Amino acid sequence: MNALIIFTWVLIANPSNIQFSTESLMVESNSGYLQLEWNAETNAISYVLQQSADANFNEFKTIYQGPDQATFISGLDNGTYYFRVGNESGHWSDTLTLNVKHQSLSLAYTLFGLGFLVFACTVFIVIKGVRTSTTHS
């Protein structure tokens, strides 16, 4: 409990200089993946990236810990996700909000059907061309 109080005091007493490299802290995705990059003015040795389902980070999971200032996140379902990055000094960035809304299933089937149609036409043209060239030879 004492560690939590000290950690909270460090967060309040030391404002963060870590920032995400996005133009806005509200990001939309229709694919469920995202590359997160962050900048820091300090020479931090290690960063921690946390993901949460609530903006207060009452429950979170650490999805990256290490020296890099970027990571790739994939496999996210529809929903709202919150991210923050901190360093070993206890400084945290502002919260980045990601809203994931995948393309509709009907659009996916339509694009798949169009792709299959193009493939079938290409196969037909190739086979017809081979037959025509063998009959003229």
Rank of each mutant, 00 (worst) to 15 (best):
T132F: 04
I63S: 05
S16A: 13
E28V: 09
V27T: 09
L11S: 06
V100Q: 02
A53R: 15
G86P: 07
V48D: 02
E23H: 10
V10D: 03
L4C: 11
I18H: 00
N56Q: 10
N56R: 08
P67S: 05
I18K: 03
D77T: 01
N78P: 09
T97E: 06
Y109T: 15
A70H: 06
V10E: 02
G79T: 06
N17G: 13
A120G: 00
L107C: 04
A70L: 04
A70Q: 13
N14K: 13
V118H: 01
V118F: 04
V123P: 02
V48C: 05
M1A: 11
T134W: 05
V85P: 07
Y47C: 07
A44Y: 07
T62K: 10
L107F: 09
V85R: 07
L25H: 09
A120E: 03
S31H: 11
E59V: 04
Q65V: 12
L36I: 09
E28H: 14
A3I: 08
W92F: 14
Q19H: 05
I18N: 01
G115I: 08
I5M: 05
G32F: 00
F124M: 11
A13Y: 00
I73E: 02
V100Y: 01
Q69I: 09
T110G: 13
F83K: 01
F83V: 03
T132E: 13
A3V: 09
T42E: 10
T42I: 08
L76P: 08
K61A: 00
I6P: 00
H91C: 14
F112W: 09
N2S: 08
I73V: 14
S31N: 14
G32I: 01
E23W: 06
T135G: 02
S24C: 11
T80W: 00
K101I: 09
D94C: 03
S89E: 15
V85T: 13
L76M: 12
P67N: 01
T122Q: 05
T134I: 11
L96Q: 12
N87Y: 06
E37A: 13
Y82S: 10
L98M: 03
S31D: 13
F60E: 12
T135Q: 12
Q69V: 06
P15L: 01
F20Q: 08
T8A: 09
C121A: 11
K128D: 07
M26H: 14
N17I: 10
T62N: 06
G79L: 05
T22H: 09
Q19Y: 02
Q50T: 07
I127T: 12
N30M: 07
A13V: 00
T80R: 01
E88L: 09
W9D: 06
H102N: 10
Y82K: 06
Q19L: 06
T42R: 10
S46C: 06
T132V: 06
Q69N: 14
Q19W: 00
Q51F: 01
G129Q: 14
T132G: 03
G86F: 04
T122L: 12
L105R: 15
L98V: 03
